[in-house]
Nucleic acid binder design. Structure first.
Lengths: 112, 112
DNA sequence: CAAGCTACCTTGCGTCACAAGGTATTCATG
DNA sequence: CATGAATACCTTGTGACGCAAGGTAGCTTG
């Protein structure tokens, strides 16, 4: 039925998810599970652990975040992620690009 | 260098491209090459033929567009694409979803 | 007739979201 | 003290898709 729409939603989320994670980390450091719980409730973005953890790995390999282990009094140890200066710079570049793309996208279809 | 950013750009474009094509077709029918020439000039979206033609195939299979061949006085025959009622309906659904997602995305990072 | 534009399409590669499944820790309940 | 639930981490397999590169064919111009 709306098979096409479902696939499209998955595609649109790509990239937006990364942006939201970087934005969230720009406020303060978070641990993975915390990010899942928070961002899975954002309307339109159904973040799951299977998406998040590989993503965080990539961000770390790319040097955009650093990690820090901290033991928790109530549960397993938490891995905290925080933005590096390079991560902050990339975030700003992404914001600029997305604004441009959104402006362009909104204008598509306005020409006869 | 900005390898991560380049990959991210590719991901963000996914989905947006489909939306823009449907929006363009909502105005009037177009042929493939025309779409490439037009949308490749939209800032932020580097549409190429290798992206477009498989995409149009998927849209046709999904029943969102129909095709029509028309001979051209100056060159090979053109394949015109036009939106079906189902395509128009899907476009509207996509617009609604994207607005929701954009609103959500903008608010991420505003909480302490 | 050769070059170049128009116009279509395919192949191969790499990236990534997501579902599903796995492990370990802590705490509450019977 | 066993059992379940919640917290918290991670991996594997699958499928979708953008994109570079390359291919075919028609028409026009020098």
């Amino acid at each position: 039925m709306s098979d096409f729409f479902d696939n499209w939603v998955v595609q649109v989320r790509k990239g937006v998810i990364e942006l939201c994670i970087l934005r969230t980390l720009a406020v303060r450091e978070r641990y993975g599970y915390e990010l899942v719980k928070e961002l899975s409730q954002v309307p339109g973005m159904g973040l799951t652990e299977g998406t998040l953890y590989p993503l965080m790995s990539r961000l770390r390999l790319a040097g955009l975040v650093t990690t820090r282990l901290e033991e928790s009094a109530s549960g397993p140890a938490r891995k905290y992620y925080s933005l590096t200066p390079e991560g902050l710079h990339t975030l700003k570049t992404m914001n600029v690009f997305l604004e441009t793309l959104q402006r362009s996208t909104q204008q598509v279809g306005d020409r006869s």
